[in-house]
Amino acid sequence: MKVLYFAWLRERLNRASDEVSPPPDVRTLADLVAWLRSQDDALDHAMANPAIFKLSRDARIVPWDTPLAGAREVAILPPMTGG
């Protein structure tokens, strides 16, 4: 599965995406984010306040408790400012 990072999160991580194979106990998008953060100190630090982020599953914004099964792509979207 591909995990995409956008805006300032992508800049902080210095990458736009990762290919991951989460373990079977990762069942929801919230589980995925928790697992990703446990694997990557930079991501953990950047997502210190996870409630501010939106998640997308296969190009649709969805709640954090959305099942992960069958997802091809998950995007982590930080809050954005306009100007």
Rank of each mutant, 00 (worst) to 15 (best):
residue 16 A to G: 15
residue 19 E to M: 11
residue 11 E to N: 11
residue 25 D to G: 07
residue 10 R to M: 06
residue 22 P to W: 06
residue 16 A to S: 15
residue 51 A to V: 13
residue 67 P to L: 14
residue 48 A to D: 14
residue 81 T to A: 14
residue 57 R to W: 01
residue 61 I to Y: 03
residue 27 R to L: 14
residue 62 V to I: 07
residue 26 V to S: 05
residue 17 S to F: 09
residue 61 I to E: 02
residue 21 S to A: 15
residue 75 A to S: 12
residue 60 R to H: 07
residue 32 L to I: 10
residue 82 G to F: 06
residue 36 L to M: 10
residue 4 L to Y: 03
residue 32 L to R: 02
residue 61 I to G: 02
residue 62 V to F: 01
residue 37 R to K: 15
residue 28 T to S: 13
residue 46 A to F: 07
residue 18 D to G: 04
residue 37 R to F: 02
residue 27 R to T: 15
residue 55 L to E: 00
residue 55 L to M: 11
residue 16 A to V: 08
residue 49 N to G: 07
residue 8 W to H: 14
residue 37 R to D: 06
residue 31 D to T: 08
residue 38 S to F: 05
residue 30 A to Y: 01
residue 31 D to C: 07
residue 66 T to P: 01
residue 81 T to S: 15
residue 34 A to C: 10
residue 17 S to W: 06
residue 31 D to S: 07
residue 40 D to N: 13
residue 71 A to N: 04
residue 50 P to G: 09
residue 65 D to Q: 12
residue 52 I to G: 10
residue 75 A to K: 00
residue 63 P to N: 13
residue 46 A to P: 05
residue 6 F to K: 02
residue 45 H to G: 12
residue 82 G to C: 11
residue 25 D to C: 11
residue 54 K to G: 01
residue 69 A to T: 13
residue 43 L to H: 02
residue 15 R to E: 06
residue 14 N to V: 11
residue 77 L to T: 05
residue 71 A to L: 07
residue 53 F to G: 03
residue 83 G to R: 07
residue 51 A to Y: 04
residue 47 M to L: 15
residue 55 L to D: 01
residue 69 A to G: 13
residue 19 E to S: 14
residue 59 A to G: 05
residue 27 R to Y: 00
residue 81 T to P: 05
residue 5 Y to S: 07
residue 51 A to C: 06
residue 55 L to Q: 03
residue 32 L to V: 07
residue 55 L to C: 10
residue 76 I to N: 01
residue 10 R to W: 03
residue 59 A to K: 12
residue 78 P to W: 04
residue 17 S to Y: 08
residue 44 D to K: 12
residue 53 F to T: 05
